[in-house]
């Protein structure tokens, strides 16, 4: 195991000569990358893509910018590219997992069930709204909202200028919000 204070760049640098060191990058980041992928493409495909993400990362680690101590943006970027490629190959958009929420507890209190039903309805609306976004806008929105990446980190991950991150996020938020409020008012009306 690497010392806990060793940053990602240090591990990647060492892995150039000692490939097995790269396992530490997996252990550190795979859980979050896997959860991100599962939300984007479903659990089954995510199983495959999480492995591919780290295999690709391992293959191109020689090009990693060692001035960046945190490898997360790099890994999210690779994962996002793989999602896009898989979607292209399959010739269809994966249903976004945002539309899926856990089943209500069997012994749940009535209020809680009601709460979950509302949440489920909202999430379905949200899922539908996300599918409407352009893929570039959606990538930005999800990396910020789901994964908590900063604008700079998203820019690194997707290899786009920070200004573009901002404008894509604004557009994605505006469209999502519009879709939610429009549908809500229809439901209420």
């Amino acid at each position: 195991m690497p010392p806990p204070d060793e940053d990602d760049a240090a591990i990647i640098r060492r892995s150039l000569r000692e490939p097995e060191r790269f396992a530490a990058i997996f252990d550190r980041h795979a859980p979050h990358i896997m959860r991100y992928l599962a939300h984007r493409v479903g659990r089954q495909v995510a199983d495959d893509l999480v492995a591919e993400t780290f295999l690709v990362a391992f293959g191109i680690r020689g090009k990693y910018d060692l001035d960046r101590p945190d490898a997360r943006p790099w890994l999210y970027g690779i994962a996002t590219n793989l999602v896009r490629r898989r979607q292209r190959e399959d010739g269809r958009e994966y249903r976004l997992r945002a539309a899926i929420v856990p089943e209500p507890d069997a012994d749940g209190h009535a209020d809680r069930v009601a709460e979950q039903v509302t949440a489920a309805a909202m999430n379905q609306l949200l899922g539908a709204a996300l599918v409407e976004l352009s893929s570039g806008d959606r990538d930005v929105l999800l990396l910020v909202a789901w994964e908590g990446l900063t604008y700079d980190e998203v820019a690194q991950a997707l290899d786009i200028p920070v200004g573009t991150v901002r404008s894509r996020l604004n557009r994605a938020r505006r469209q999502t919000r519009a879709a939610l409020t429009a549908k809500e008012s229809v439901n209420r009306g």
Binding site: R35, A51, A145
Partner: peptide
């Protein structure tokens, strides 16, 4: 708002365990 809604989706999902990740880790190793 939409950001909170989206964030909730992820927060409600537990992180995968080492067992979930075992096949992927094996391929990498």
């Amino acid at each position: 708002d939409e950001m909170t809604l989206l964030g909730n989706v992820v927060d409600q999902t537990p992180l995968p365990t080492a067992t979930d990740l075992a096949p992927a880790r094996q391929r990498l190793m």
